[in-house]
Design a protein around this nucleic acid. Structure first.
Lengths: 240, 240
DNA sequence: TCAAAAGTGTTGTACGTACACCCATGC
DNA sequence: GCATGGGTGTACGTACAACACTTTTGA
């Protein structure tokens, strides 16, 4: 190989999901420049020459939301690099998935002033349309989140550090879009080794009998997994 | 955004797995240029300016192995872009996973003349060491393959178009690295709707009582999944 | 007739769903 | 007391691992 190589632009784009009043929401920003000026898009930007990809994603997340890790979960999703996906130049984007607890957003007076939370399900239906191929990236991100709730303790990333089982259950219901039996759910999650560690406290913030308060436990894999009611599982789009 | 952007090189690298005499093997090429000259590496190369990422992976696969799709399964794995992973310049590589039936390889007189199959398990143990961060990419690829055998009909990608249940079972045993009960396996795979379609033929090529011959069925998701015996599942390396 | 591999039956256990029921609080 | 949500007990179904057993071939 010579030192000649075709130059590409490399960006990161973020699918940032959170729960607001019981429904899944996605962070979008209105684009300030052409192309797609004024159109909502996933937050993201160019990778700097001296930073890693995850580092770039973390930086963009902080710039757009004021959010710092490890409050949020961040993982690589897939890369998208069709020629022509950006009319200006050849761009390969590395997409990341971030899950965050409900946040005071956006912080006015920052880069994030144009950012807002939109309901994920209407975005998935195409209202409003997203710039570039971001609808597809969002679809892949949501499907990844749905699948990972089954076998990982990821749902806790949507919760504050201390939470009740009912709050955790509402995460599952919102992400999966299906009701979950509170009684069986309780037994299951308390039975999975290392998923939840009790703080010893109780709270009545949900009304009714006081509920135990938990913190996330050390488990990284749920065994046995929590299975969602047989639903049409979207196959991933085999990102290119 | 201006039209100024930091230029990156973008490559594809391939984790190509096959089965040879009952063991998983990985395709490697000996590097012909610095850095890492003479060191085995995963096949791959620069993405051309006018081709998509998957297209580039398919082209490299054909160039290195003479293999054409859809004989083989090909899917995106993850992207790796640490600054410094290539000493020459800033390179982001998009890794792909390919699974192929046993092949007559390499074809002498082509670009692939330096390519050969090495046993995957010794490569995972670091013998011989691979160039760049390819050991990590290989680890992620193998773990992806192991996981996907559970819930997808991917194991058939290692088989010729027509195969017996015993042959399919040997794929599972080789990839998972654990023995599988032939009787329960038989019942399970024949019970999963759409996994296998019988051809009506039988063969005695495995010895003993004649076995039915099957082709891959239309299912894309296995339900219920085939679960591997509880083994230490390598968590993915959260590619950067 | 024997070895080898295909394929079936049976049983104990683990885990899932559904839902009746009791417990502890605020009002 | 009564409504509200937290948490437990029980019954029944499905699926799985383990392994005894029968079938069909080649040598």
């Amino acid at each position: 190989m010579s030192s000649e190589f075709p130059p590409f632009a490399v960006t990161v784009d973020l699918v940032v999901l959170t729960l607001r009043d019981g429904h899944l929401h996605t962070l979008v920003v209105d684009r300030g420049v052409e192309p797609f000026i004024g159109v909502p898009a996933l937050p993201g930007g160019f990778v700097h020459p001296e930073e890693g990809l995850t580092e770039a994603a973390r930086r963009e997340l902080a710039e757009e939301t004021g959010l710092r890790l490890p409050e949020a979960h961040l993982e690589q999703l897939a890369s998208y690099g069709d020629p022509g996906r950006d009319p200006r130049m050849r761009v390969v984007t590395v997409a990341y998935l971030a899950l965050a607890p409900d946040l005071p957003l956006p912080v006015a007076g920052t880069d994030a002033s144009d950012s807002r939370w939109l309901p994920t399900d209407t975005l998935l239906e195409g209202a409003p349309p997203l710039a570039f191929d971001h609808a597809r990236i969002l679809r892949d991100g949501v499907e990844r989140a749905r699948a990972k709730l089954e076998y990982s303790p990821l749902a806790t990333a949507f919760c504050p550090p201390e939470f009740t089982i009912a709050e955790l259950r509402r995460v599952y219901e919102a992400v999966w879009g299906t009701p979950v039996d509170p009684r069986n759910f309780h037994r299951k999650v308390t039975g999975v080794d290392g998923f939840l560690t009790p703080t010893g406290d109780t709270t009545t913030r949900d009304g009714g009998r006081p509920a135990q308060v938990f913190r996330r436990g050390p488990a990284t894999l749920l065994h046995p997994p929590l299975t969602r009611p047989a639903a049409p599982r979207t196959p991933p789009s085999a990102a290119d």
